[in-house]
Amino acid sequence: MNVREHKIVITGTMGAGKTTAIRQISDHPPLLTDVANTRRDESDKATTTAAFDFGELDLGDGEVLRIYGTPGQERFDFMWPIVARGALGIVFLLDLSREDPVADLERYFSAFGKQLGETPSVLALNKLDAVEAAPVALFQQYLEGRGLSWPIIPTDVREREHVLDLMEVVLSLNESLLTEES
């Protein structure tokens, strides 16, 4: 049987929860390119992703979701568009506990360039514990200013159901796009 493959990329800063999200839904332990983190002043994580994370989810009926996570630190920004090549959708995972998540998003926008307008994307707001209320309106305004109307989804990627919801939204965005095109 021919397998239909769907590729979704999760991107975001170091510690935003990309690897956690992939781990939650992958059918097998994710393939990681972890290396020792020598910048413990930046993040307390012992390791960091240097190339990409990869997981797979069998959707049934011969369809497989391949989920890739990008490296978080800005010095690896050359990897972001490489990993995103051929993706049907991108999840921009924001860490709300960071000092300036809008500035974080801005950096990712610059790096992804023209892929932004072409690839269905979702803005996922993670680590909601760090804020009183999810600043959905703030990000909505930001996206509108750039002519983008992406779904903004408060999430907790430690919960498998939340990550599955994100994937479902990206898949349906892609489906809508294909329907519009046909």
Binding site: T33, A51, F78
Partner: peptide
């Protein structure tokens, strides 16, 4: 050098992952 250092890290990590696979 800073860019090449980051790329060397990615390349090495990929090599490690591929070797393991």
């Amino acid at each position: 050098a800073e860019r090449v250092a980051a790329m060397a890290s990615s390349g090495h990590a990929l090599g490690d992952t591929l070797a393991g696979e």
